[in-house]
Design a protein around this nucleic acid. Structure first.
Lengths: 220, 220
DNA sequence: CGGTCATTTGAACTGTATCAAAGTCGGTGG
DNA sequence: CCACCGACTTTGATACAGTTCAAATGACCG
């Protein structure tokens, strides 16, 4: 399907709290090994043993689930500062792959569990992540294509701490599989938003919000 | 919108573990007050303080979120034995209402927190519930109307410990708002499933699976 | 029985998918 | 340095699943 890639480089690292989001004094500092995963490289697969937890340093990661006929639903995107791979059971409920070349700190689950304070924070992060999928379900169940795209872009800008301009870390296909749309609908919708002067595109990855207020109105 | 109703009756009670699901030695015994909520009655609203946790004794409950124009997404249905209203933050992220007259045990959050073992179990239940919304997102993002209905019915039968016949505790509109469809599509799809001899309906609430295997194939 | 509310059915419409082709961009090798 | 390649994206034309609007039917309850 797509070019196969594999992990590179491994150095010991202490990954500090990065994101400066609103209430993130809840940030997790993972101690572990930094690994570089190349674009499209699998980090773990659905059903694997969940022995490690991860934190994105740079690049981005997607997690996803598949139906047996190949339809894919991307469940989350992870951006720099995000923790992922925290499972409550023993097995992975979703697979994870690097979107672009990504540097990730990998930490043994058992090692984290030893530190009560740390594992509390990790739990809270994981819960917050799960709560995002409730929001996601609302979007998938009840919003139009335009509303999905707009709320997605606004959310992404927010998580990237971007004010009104940022780089999309994923392809149109990834966006489509996250929003329950097709790649063509994503493309057309973004073209239309640009025609309506609600967003500006420079190349297909760089997005600017010339009038954020108007965008926000579109999906409240 | 709909007939207003209100809570009735309050007696002290000890709500024992009910569901005999596969791995539910994880069941929670809430000690609190039994309340009866009438059909369509609000149990709590989005944004309320989350001071109580609940367990369904009989009847059923829905939780939901609204868009500002009134579109509704039902996030979960709670059946006898289910715990609900466990929040990780201080505020309700969704509203909850009784589907039918429902008996519910209400317990102060602070009271439960005192019992470590108990609150652990409560947490795990809440996490499992949140994980369900990841499954839900897959369904909403990537399955057809027929697949949604079939997987919904199978899941419901399972949770009701029904073998091949059970009573739907909710209206077509509720099913529609859970599955991201319209009431007409739900109705037509069920009629079609019946015509295909994949389900049998007696009245609009009683469902039977004459060939469960065939149903399961429809949504793997 | 009659009234109310939920459900089903029908007909027409529409948003999004599908299928197909053309355009863009970045990288690579000549 | 430039031309070509492959992957991704955009655009176009058409199809269709699911929605919308409207009306008929059915179920429940006093």
């Amino acid at each position: 399907m797509q070019a196969q890639a594999y992990a590179l480089k491994s150095t010991a690292i202490r990954a500090p709290a990065i994101r400066n989001g609103v209430e993130d004094r809840d940030d997790v500092t993972l101690i572990g090994v930094a690994k570089t995963y190349h674009r499209e490289c699998e980090i773990f697969g659905e059903g694997d043993a969940a022995d490690f937890v991860y934190k994105v340093i740079s690049g981005a990661v997607r997690s996803f689930r598949l139906l047996s006929d190949g339809r894919r639903q991307i469940t989350h995107f992870y951006l720099p500062g995000d923790v992922f791979g925290v499972e409550f059971g023993k097995e992975r409920r979703a697979g994870a792959e690097a979107l672009s070349d990504a540097v990730v700190v990998v930490s043994r689950r058992s090692a984290v569990a030893a530190d009560f304070d740390q594992s509390m924070r990790l739990w809270r992060q994981a819960v917050r992540e799960l709560q995002r999928s409730e929001d996601h379900a609302l979007t998938l169940g009840r919003r139009s294509a335009t509303e999905r795209i707009v709320s997605f872009l606004l959310d992404l800008a927010d998580r990237l701490d971007a004010d009104d301009e940022f780089e999309l870390p994923m392809t149109r296909q990834d966006i489509a599989d996250y929003l329950g749309l097709t790649i063509e609908t994503v493309s057309r919708t973004m073209t239309q938003l640009q025609a309506d002067r609600l967003i500006q595109l420079q190349g297909c990855r760089r997005v600017r919000f010339p009038r954020r207020g108007a965008l926000e109105e579109l999906c409240e």
